[in-house]
């Protein structure tokens, strides 16, 4: 089987804009699912509402496209009712961190055995580019026309503090690393959270000085720094340059998990 066989051929091309990073994250997730050897009939993809949440509709397994922000609550029901199913949740920054923030921290706390792939495009893409909880301070959007005045959520730190067993962050440029991180997430019992920054050329990029799709990808390439390296720099008393994206593995641990197949 190949990744291609996990796609609903009759639904492609998908609705994502040209250059949208969500498609890349789908590739990486399917590659990881393929590598771990899960079967289609045992795997369920769940999502909420938003650009990212359209992803399960293109995957040829059982999939539940739910209401805004509630994907994790639905996924919790599925996993507890049938622990034999492998549950992967696709979500976005608005879906997960804003309307679904409470479900997120409680899913981490329960450490329920599901893997969450968050496509963080730092904006509400589907509704036309409104500011989200992860829009960086100063970021322009239709609801922050003078630059966002709020600090952004660091989803990985949040997930780590709330108790997830595995937490990692990469970007849609780092396809290899992202795939490996998702694979580790799938393998880890308990709640795994993989955040992938993705470019949104239509709504974020063009308002925030990334004229071309490749500009934002180039930014991801040049502005990521490994968590470990940032840690070493801090130990040495060096300043981590502002605006750098911390990437890599934030947490890998073995807290007791819920809903693990017996």
């Amino acid at each position: 089987m190949s990744e291609e066989e996990w796609l609903r051929q009759d639904r492609l091309p998908h609705i994502f804009c040209a250059g949208c990073g969500n498609g890349t994250v789908i590739n990486c997730t399917l590659s990881a699912v393929e590598q771990i050897g899960w079967k289609k009939q045992d795997t369920v993809f769940v999502s909420g509402i938003g650009c990212s949440s359209r992803a399960p509709g293109y995957i040829a397994a059982d999939s539940l496209h739910t209401t805004h922000g509630r994907a994790l609550a639905f996924a919790t029901g599925i996993k507890l009712a049938n622990p034999a199913l492998n549950v992967v949740v696709f979500t976005g920054d608005g879906d997960l961190a804003a309307i679904g923030g409470n479900h997120f921290i409680h899913a981490c706390r329960r450490n329920i055995d599901i893997t969450v792939v968050c496509m963080n495009n730092m904006i509400y893409g589907m509704t036309g580019g409104q500011g989200s909880p992860t829009t960086p301070a100063g970021g322009l959007s239709t609801t922050t026309p003078y630059g966002s005045e709020e600090p952004a959520f660091d989803l990985c730190v949040l997930a780590s503090a709330a108790g997830a067993n595995y937490v990692a962050r990469w970007t849609s440029y780092h396809v290899r690393e992202l795939t490996r991180a998702i694979l580790t997430g799938l393998e880890t019992p308990g709640f795994s959270f993989i955040e992938s920054l993705v470019q949104c050329p239509t709504n974020y990029g063009r308002r925030n000085r990334f004229k071309q799709v490749t500009d934002q990808i180039e930014y991801f390439r040049s502005h990521t720094i490994l968590v470990e390296k940032a840690g070493r720099m801090k130990e040495k008393g060096e300043e981590v340059p502002a605006g750098m994206i911390l990437s890599g593995e934030f947490v890998r641990r073995n807290r007791p998990a819920l809903g693990v197949r017996q």
């Binding site: 492609l12 969500n22 890349t24 789908i26 590739n27 990486c28 396809v175």
Partner: peptide, 13 residues
């Protein structure tokens, strides 16, 4: 296979 992985539109094979 990086081009295939990064291609958001699953167009490279």
């Amino acid at each position: 296979g990086t081009c295939q992985m990064i291609c958001p539109d699953q167009a490279i094979s």
